[in-house]
């Protein structure tokens, strides 16, 4: 009855089995290569830099002498810039998401705005640096300051927060809103009392993602004109500044072994900060989930 002869089937089956196993192995190998490279990267950094980290590394300004160089100015600069970027992006991002999801959902404006946001998310970060240079540094006259850097990175990470906040807002069940509207609440009362509290963990996850991204950005701040050698901490929002990634970049580009070790140490500090922020996001999310589900 069979349309395929037994011998053909058997012969092909042997090959299929063999290829199936080989392909499975190939897939596994790909994952292993990716994970292995990550492991090599982390181990290499630790080996290169961990002995260089001590209190004076964290509290010293950069120096011509690699063994005396530290990241005080870079850390403080990073914290200031990232806080400004976070506040700007949080405010604008949540407000935009609320407007696009709650006030103008399905309008033509919302559709265009969303396509625009998707494209902004794909604009190379260095282009944001040029935008910051022209708008904040030169046109608005803020100079190559902490404020200008914060605004630049704020715009850069804005799409991340808008997308995360929009998703969180969409996930709020319509029945909650309808219940509040039925009691005569105004739109803003519904948004403030129902939508924002429900969407809050999702929004905060987006904020932390965005702030992590801002924390690691180098290119836009260089294009904007941040300094690479800063032996002082910023005293006002209009002070000049550097950030940790730029400091790392600067040290990486130097031929001396001592500076390269300092770069590795700086990278470890940067990654630890990012790790804590992301752990914070995970804890935040699980706590909110427990609160509602438990």
């Amino acid at each position: 009855m069979a349309v395929i002869s037994r011998s053909d089937f058997e012969r092909v089956r042997g090959r299929r089995r063999w290829m199936g196993r080989a392909f499975h192995a190939l897939c596994l190998l790909s994952v292993a290569i990716a994970l292995g490279m990550l492991a090599v990267l982390l181990v290499y950094l630790l080996v290169q830099g961990v002995t260089r980290i001590d209190w004076s590394f964290l509290t010293s300004f950069p120096s011509r002498h690699p063994e005396q160089a530290g990241i005080k100015a870079a850390i403080v600069g990073s914290v200031y810039v990232v806080i400004i970027a976070g506040v700007v992006a949080f405010t604008l991002g949540v407000a935009s998401a609320l407007y696009l999801e709650e006030y103008a959902a399905r309008s033509k404006f919302a559709r265009i705005a969303k396509i625009n946001i998707a494209n902004l998310a794909g604009v190379p970060s260095i282009v944001y640096g040029i935008l910051g240079l022209e708008i904040f540094v030169r046109t608005m006259g803020l100079g190559k300051s902490v404020l200008a850097g914060g605004f630049t990175l704020g715009l850069l990470v804005l799409p991340i927060i808008i997308v995360a906040a929009s998703e969180a807002i969409r996930a709020v069940p319509p029945s909650l809103r309808e219940g509040a509207y039925a009691l005569g609440a105004t739109r803003w009362q519904v948004v403030w009392n129902m939508v924002i509290p429900q969407a809050f963990p999702g929004i905060m996850t987006g904020v932390i993602l965005a702030v992590s991204r801002a924390m690691g950005e180098t290119a836009p701040l260089i294009a904007m004109g941040a300094l690479t050698f800063v032996p002082f901490t910023p005293t006002s929002p209009l002070s000049r500044f550097t950030v940790l990634p730029i400091q790392i970049f600067n040290w990486t580009s130097r031929p001396q072994q001592g500076f390269q070790e300092a770069a590795a140490a700086g990278i470890i500090v940067l990654l630890v900060i990012l790790l804590f922020m992301n752990a914070g996001a995970v804890i935040l999310r699980s706590r909110f989930q427990n609160k509602w589900e438990g």
């Binding site: 349309v3 002869s5 053909d8 089937f9 012969r11 092909v12 089956r13």
Partner: peptide, 14 residues
């Protein structure tokens, strides 16, 4: 089905 299982004949007919 015939393709993956090693069919060698006239596919159009099948």
């Amino acid at each position: 089905g015939p393709r993956i299982n090693g069919f060698k004949g006239d596919m159009e007919e099948v």
